[in-house]
């Protein structure tokens, strides 16, 4: 007995590995651990491939079927355990991949935030230094707040609104803008978007909103600025541009799209609560719009 069990122990480890290996490499055909007896008394354990069936088939006596059932039950059990383990490993792999992704994202974001802060500090310093020279060039004064409101990525939206309004004020008193010229300018600026020349598009669109702060197409221009920034991606600026459309162009035909894209931008900025707010808003305010449908199907990453 003792000899047997010793023997068996060695075999056990072997068999364990064998079945595991087999199950893991799904392609390898079934290997079964069996004993082949030359005569019935001296049974020597032999490891064989794919011959279990023959042994069982050649033993004619009664309890064959249940015996097959039981042995294979154990085999099946192992098979299912391995299947389960495979699935478990796969889903764990999924979790690892997802977490690695999130870590990468967080790293990138903290770097972006730092850069953003740094650039704003530099701009502030520059603005202070330039404040003297600005007085000498009065036409630049109206332009600069507008630009900084978009590019400077002000954190508080109220500030943006104020900036845009103040920029718009002088334009109202200016002589009425030639509609055709405006349309042409818009199309020229938009052409850069279609040609995917994004830096040129940014310049042209900024120039456009500067020239026509209160034009028919100004909302469109801000919208496309947002789109371009989203592609670049300069998310803070994108947020700014979409916010301007949403907050200062009520009733604009790009409003539903801009609201949706603002939600998307917040999602990209890892602000799921804000993202959800705007994605919900677009569905409530414009239930029949394409943007609402897109918002509905959009999955916010958390």
């Amino acid at each position: 007995m003792l000899k047997y069990s010793k023997h068996r122990k060695g075999l056990l480890t072997k068999s364990f590995f064998v079945s595991l290996c087999f199950a893991l490499s799904a392609s390898v055909s079934a290997k079964t651990l069996i004993f082949q007896s030359k005569d019935n008394s001296a049974s020597e354990p032999v490891y064989e491939q794919e011959s279990g069936s023959q042994v069982q088939a050649s033993t004619p006596s009664a309890p064959v079927a249940p015996a097959v059932g039981q042995t294979s039950n154990i085999n099946s059990e192992l098979f299912f355990i391995v299947e389960e383990l495979k699935q478990e490993v796969m889903s764990l792999r999924g979790v690892v991949e997802e977490q690695a992704f999130e870590i990468r994202q967080l790293k990138r974001q903290s770097l972006d935030r730092y850069k953003d802060l740094d650039s704003r500090l530099q701009e502030m310093a520059k603005a202070r230094a330039e404040s003297v020279s600005v007085v000498q060039k009065p036409e630049l004064v109206t332009a600069s707040p507008n630009i900084s409101s978009v590019q400077g990525a002000a954190v508080v939206p109220v500030v943006v609104q104020a900036d845009v309004k103040s920029a718009a004020a002088p334009a109202e008193s200016a002589p009425s803008v030639d509609q055709d010229q405006q349309k042409l300018d818009y199309q020229n600026a938009y052409a850069y978007v279609t040609k995917k020349d994004f830096p040129a598009a940014v310049d042209a669109l900024h120039a456009f909103v500067e020239k026509y702060p209160d034009g028919d197409l100004t909302g469109n221009a801000f919208y496309w600025l947002g789109e371009v920034y989203l592609v670049l991606p300069q998310l803070e600026q994108a947020k700014q541009a979409f916010s301007i459309v949403v907050k200062t162009f009520p009733g604009h035909r790009k409003l539903s799209d801009a609201t949706y894209k603002l939600g998307v931008t917040y999602d990209r900025l890892q602000q799921p609560a804000e993202a959800e707010r705007y994605l919900k808003m677009v569905q409530e305010k414009f239930p029949n719009s394409t943007a609402a449908k897109l918002a509905k199907s959009y999955t916010i990453s958390r």
């Binding site: 796969m90 999924g94 991949e97 992704f101």
Partner: peptide
């Protein structure tokens, strides 16, 4: 590939041959 339990999109450089997962939403 559904090596992570669900079908997702992977990118692979043909020299390095180390698959990198691209999609994480859904």
């Amino acid at each position: 590939s559904d090596r992570s339990g669900t079908p997702q999109i992977y990118e692979m450089d043909l020299v390095e041959r180390r698959p990198e997962r691209l999609t994480f939403k859904g």
